[in-house]
Amino acid sequence: MKNRLASLIASAALTAVVAFSASARAEELRILTWEGYADDQWVKEFEKQTGATVKISYTGSVDEIFAKMEGSKGADFDVVAIETSSYKRLYEQKLIQPLDLAKLPNYKNLSDVFQHIDSIQFDGKPYAAPYAWGSLPLIYDKKAFPTPPDSWAVLWDPQYAGHVLAMDDANNEISTAAMVLGFKNPFNLSDAEFAAVKKKLLEQKANVLSYYAGFDDGISIFAQNDVSLMFSMGEPQVGMLQKKGVDAAMTIPKEGAIGWIDCWTISSATKNVELAHKWIDFMLEKRVGTYISTQTGYGNTTDPEANQKIGLTYADKLVFFQPPEDPKRRVALWNEIKATPVQ
């Protein structure tokens, strides 16, 4: 009789333990991100710290992030890393929720430039934490330019006709032209500014050897032809060109350049707000920032020295992406420019 009771208690206890550990195991963090942002060593450490399991889905494009988030109304993911200009759409579609800064003690690690990014604030609340950044700089061949060109105007200089590479990207081309023209907000243009940008880009077209599409495409054209200047898609292109034997360097001209920041945000339909905040707080640790810069070559938001080491010291000269006033209009204008023959 006693034995039976003992075994009953034991089995009940066992059931409780199993049930408890099952519920502990059910703590799962589902991350939607780009490759290189949630590397194994950090995931493992986070899992050890919190006892949760992390499930990562990698994405190849912003379109894919929207498709996946919209498809499940956010329920399939807890945290997402995405670039600043996408936040307006995510916010309007109610796919994300504001961050609770009380749950993010590491938020103070953010460098000043990244404390108040307009495009990720709505109703006065921060919706995301900046994590990694980079720019769309001007790349030049040191053979042609012993000293770095100081203005984007070189892309229009007839002296370099046929030696200029531009980018097949409506938004980037239009925004950079707007900066060259000195317009106040390159992502929100008036009708008159649109017309001026069109004229400016048509003038540039006469100088352009080709519009490239993609990192590798730009590199291969640059290396195989007599190219001196390129409107670049990002810092890594410098190293890629050097590997191909081009004496390339980059600069942020005096007019400034477009910048991007990938930020962590929390899905509106997350099952675990606490855990999501824990992940973001973890990602804001300084050593994670150091790692980002040394491993990927992109800028980080928490360790200025690591940025300095790889030369990314110009965050304050960048105009960070915002949602353009009218994406369709930009694409239509760019198509018109591409379809107009040049003499």
Binding site: V208, S210, Y211, A213, A339
Partner: peptide, 25 residues
């Protein structure tokens, strides 16, 4: 055409392609 045609390489296929991505049309 885009890859070998330089600034003259704009064709109908590219026009269709451009409606996806950012334009979201």
């Amino acid at each position: 055409p885009q890859m070998v045609g330089g600034v003259k390489g704009f064709t109908f296929g590219r026009l269709i392609w451009s409606q996806f991505g950012m334009a979201f049309d």
